[in-house]
Each structure stands twice: as C-alpha cells, then as structure tokens.
C-alpha cells in the first residue's frame, strides 16, 4: 500500500498539470478547470479575516499526519462511511456499472467503478460521497464571490489550499488572476513541492503565501512525506528572496519534528513575515477509514501546550516572529 502510494506521488509530481488538461477535456469547455476537493466558507485559520478556502485535489506529498488524506490523490475518489451505512442496498441497486457489492458489513466498491456518483445521490444516509469534482475557474469564482460581503467587512478573502495548489498550476494561476481583477484578497497555502518557475511566477499573483515546512533532514523528510525536501527549501528561499510575503507554517508532530532540528537556525536567516506553529491533531483518522487506508499515526497524541510554548520561545529567542495556531 505504502509503495503504491509512493508511486502515485512520484507520478503526480511529474504529471500534476496533466490532470488539469484531462479535467478540462472532461469538462468540454474552453476554460481552465481542475479537480477541487471542497470549497469551505467561513474558514478562519488560513489567512486574515473571514475566508473561503478552496481545496485543490492532489498533492505530491503524502505526509503521515495529513488530516486531509482525501486531498492527496489527484483523481476524484468515492468515500464510504460504514458508521452511516444502513446496508439498505440502494447504492448497489442504482449503480449503472454494477460496481458495488456487499462484503460482510460493508458495501464495497469494485474496480468497475467509474466515479459517476449515482450511488452518492442514491444514498440518503450520506454514507457515500465523492471527494473531488471538476470545476472551471468561473465556477470556482462564483462560489468564492458569494461571501464577498464578509471579505470586505473582515479583510478576508480566498485561500487556495489542498492538496497542493501548485499541483494544478494553470488553474491556480487563472484563479489568482481573476481574483486580482476582482480585488479579492488571495492566500496560497503550499507544501512547496513544485516547479521553481511556476512557484515564482504564480506566487507573485498571491497577496500572501502560507508555506508549509516539515523538517530540514532530507532522509527523514522523504520517509515521512514521501519526497525529498531540497526543492521545498530552495523554493522557499527563492520566494523570500523575491520579496514575497511568506508565513512559514510548521506542523508540530510529536516524535517526528518536535525535537532538536536546525530549522530554527535556518529560518532565522530568512526575512519571514511570521512562523506559525500548528500542533498536530488526530482529527483525520476517521477519513483514512473512509478511504480504506491505513493511518500510521494512531499512537501519536497532540503535543503538550508547554512543548508548543517552548518551541515558540526558542524561535522568538532568535528573532523569529511566532504564532501558535490551531
């Protein structure tokens, strides 16, 4: 399973933008489109004010602690909640491809599934949902613009997150340009694993960049996220060097990156707007179950408040402006 995921990750790194093309073809319109996992209004923690968060689907990394595992795969996926399922069989009865069968106490999807989502409509109990749908720039914008009155009032805007927004670079660029025309404040949250050229060119269109940083050690980074981090670090340095407003966000995961690391010394050299420390939480565990995937952080508890405070103090000591978020 792990190896399989790693293969997808590598493939996605190479061909991320091809999914956009595929999506555009599927959409049949001559407009940039892509696969969006979810659009969430009244998002308060990813940039200033009241925001709408647009979750891109697909990420080149697959961090062990990821609490949005359904955002990792670039393709739409069917999610299944056994807790909600009444085993009524409505999904199997309506599936035009005969791709659902009952195995034990679960209604299981077979390889014949074409992601048509007929079963999602049929399931009144909401045990089935599809993660990811193809949307054009204007469709996404229409959703975002619903809350402009709240953005105006609160100094908020839209946050492109994911998944990895740069994984669908053309879509991201289209959205950022359109928001700029409409004077909507934009934030891009990225893991940094993307082509330098597009990060720099498209990053300039954003009003704020939230840049995730996990650890400096390349081997451990590869172990826990599925990819090396040289590219991530170089992209960060390039963005900062270009004078773009960057907030670095560090997910603090006990036993993985809450110990001694030279990240502090590294960050102290960069003129950052701020560093946010995000305490790990296990809220995503249920989602792994619904995806039928293994969660490797079962035994990990959130970091203690004092751990967070100590890390923040250490950073402040070297002159880094810090905020503990969460």
């Amino acid at each position: 399973m792990v190896r399989h995921r790693a293969a997808i990750v590598r493939m996605a790194l190479l061909v991320g933008s091809q999914w956009v093309d595929a999506a555009r073809r599927a959409n049949g319109k001559d407009e940039v489109s892509g696969v969006i996992l979810h659009i969430m209004r009244f998002s308060l923690h990813d940039g200033p004010g009241i925001r709408t968060a647009v979750f891109f689907k697909g990420c080149p990394l697959s961090c062990w602690w990821c609490h949005n595992p359904e955002s990792q795969n670039f393709e739409p996926e069917v999610l299944y909640s056994a807790e909600r399922c009444r085993l009524c069989g409505d999904c199997a009865a309506t599936c035009p491809h005969g791709a659902i069968e009952r195995i034990g106490e679960r209604m299981t999807v077979t390889d014949d599934c074409r992601l048509c989502a007929t079963c999602v409509d049929a399931c009144g109990a909401e045990a089935r949902s599809v993660a990811g749908r193809t949307m054009t720039v204007s469709e996404i914008l229409a959703e975002v613009e619903r809350d402009v009155v709240f953005f105006d009032e609160s100094g908020g805007g839209v946050t492109f997150t994911g998944g990895e927004p740069f994984g669908q670079a053309e879509l991201l660029e289209g959205l950022l340009q359109a928001c700029r025309e409409r004077r909507i404040h934009t934030t891009v949250e990225t893991c940094g694993a993307a082509a330098r050229e597009s990060v720099l060119r498209i990053g300039r269109l954003a009003d704020l960049i939230l840049y995730d940083l996990k650890m400096l050690d390349a081997e451990r980074h590869r172990l826990y996220t599925g990819a090396a981090n040289r590219n991530v670090l170089e992209n960060l340095e390039a963005l900062v060097a270009a004078g773009l407003p960057v907030i670095v966000r560090i997910p603090v995961v006990p036993g993985i990156n809450d110990g001694a690391d030279d990240v502090r010394a590294y960050l102290a050299k960069l003129p950052l707007t701020r560093v946010d420390l995000l305490p790990y939480h296990g809220a995503g565990v249920e989602k792994y179950r619904r995806l039928g995937r293994e969660y490797r952080m079962q035994q990990t508890a959130p970091p203690a408040d004092r751990t967070m405070a100590a890390m923040a103090a250490e950073m402040e000591a070297v002159g880094i402006p810090v905020k503990i978020a969460g």
Binding site: L44, G49, I50, V149, F150, E153, S154, G156
Partner: peptide, 22 residues
Amino acid sequence: RLVEGESGLAHLAHLVRSYFKL
C-alpha cells in the same frame, strides 16, 4: 472555542456587520 480571543470577537463582529449590511 470559535469566539475565543480578540480574533474570535472580531469574527463575530464581522458576521454581525455583514448581516446588517445585507
């Protein structure tokens, strides 16, 4: 939890002002 701190207060205030703008 949602309304904790200065930012929580600001979010509530923004919701109210926005609703009244509408």
